[in-house]
Computed example of a mutant assay.
Amino acid sequence: MSRLAPRPQRREPQNWREHLYEIIFEADTRAGKLFDVVLLVAILLSVAVVMLESVRSIRSAHGGLLFAAEWFFTILFTVEYVVRLICVPRPLRYVFSFYGIVDLLAILPTYLTAIPYVAGRAGTQRLATIRALRLLRAFRIFKLAHMLSEAEALRQAIWAARAKIAVFLSVVLIAVVIVGSAMHLIEGGKVDADGRPVVTGFDSIPESMYWAIVTMTTVGYGDVSPSTPAGKALAAGMMMLGYCLIIVPTGIVTAELTHVGAKKLSTQVCPGCMAEGHDADAAFCKYCGTHL
């Protein structure tokens, strides 16, 4: 009977930078998990502050406190971002990685509000809610490696079905253009008794295409609707087509999932290229060969 190969031993940190890297970028140690849990709590609180700031009554009553809290979290995340740059072996790789870009975007909006020209722009402060994207780190923090494996399997299935999905989207786009044009021909161009044009919502092909998309996706806002018998018949056909097309993407991806097996992945981040999604028994990065 063959024996299973032992899992590679973790290489111990050799200096303070490697030790700091292990705490900040890994979730396999107690210190690393504690750091990421505290970070997640801070992210949740900062997003809550931005949401509360958007409520007029709360902003008028506690505007100063919310302003101070927002700058506190921004400075905290700025220090964290700088520390990440210091301890990572290749800073530029981290800066242009997915999490690096998200971490930078999480602190930029508050600093932009300090610029006189930008400070008066509405919505700049609310861009700070992009920090919610950093909650994706929860997959690494709580050792949800099995969820990472399933997510990787889903990604592979979607990528394998990309050609079929592209054909499906092309069919949908063609149907929207044809039905939108037909509805514009049927419902558009109406005039009242005095010969003045009547606004029907189908006054142009783009507006009719908007109605077709809303109808096909079964959303049905009701802001635009046909009034003629021919228009209603076309709308009924569009609704039935929408119900039939809803299940197509699900079937395509499901068929590909049956051919993709979920591999067990680890939560480690490569110190060389900042890539994730390594096999649980991997000792080296499968993208650049760096020792994990």
Rank of each mutant, 00 (worst) to 15 (best):
D203A: 01
A153S: 15
I107G: 11
L127F: 15
K263I: 07
A106F: 07
A160G: 04
V214Q: 06
T113N: 09
S266A: 13
Q125R: 12
K164Q: 14
S170N: 01
A262Q: 07
V50L: 05
L39I: 03
T29I: 02
R11K: 09
L173V: 10
T228W: 07
F98A: 06
E18L: 03
G188R: 11
F202W: 09
E276F: 04
G201H: 04
L85K: 04
E187Q: 13
L257N: 05
K263W: 08
L265H: 02
Y287W: 10
C288H: 00
P206L: 10
I205A: 02
N15P: 04
V95Q: 01
M239T: 12
V49L: 13
G63S: 13
F25T: 00
C288S: 07
A166P: 01
G100N: 05
R134Q: 15
G242I: 09
T129L: 15
V260F: 06
G64D: 14
R126H: 14
L292K: 08
V49P: 07
V269C: 14
D36M: 10
I213E: 06
G195D: 08
D36E: 02
M240P: 00
V214F: 10
L105W: 08
T74D: 11
G63V: 10
L65D: 12
G123Q: 06
I186R: 05
T290Q: 13
H146E: 14
G272F: 04
R90E: 14
A166Y: 12
M238I: 04
Y81S: 07
I58W: 14
Q268N: 14
K190I: 00
D36V: 02
Q156S: 11
R93E: 15
V198G: 05
S2I: 03
L154P: 00
V95N: 04
A280N: 01
V55R: 04
Q125D: 02
E70T: 09
E12P: 04
I130N: 07
M274V: 14
L105I: 02
A166R: 12
F73D: 06
A275S: 13
T258G: 15
Q268P: 00
A282T: 11
V102S: 00
C270N: 09
W16K: 04
F284P: 10
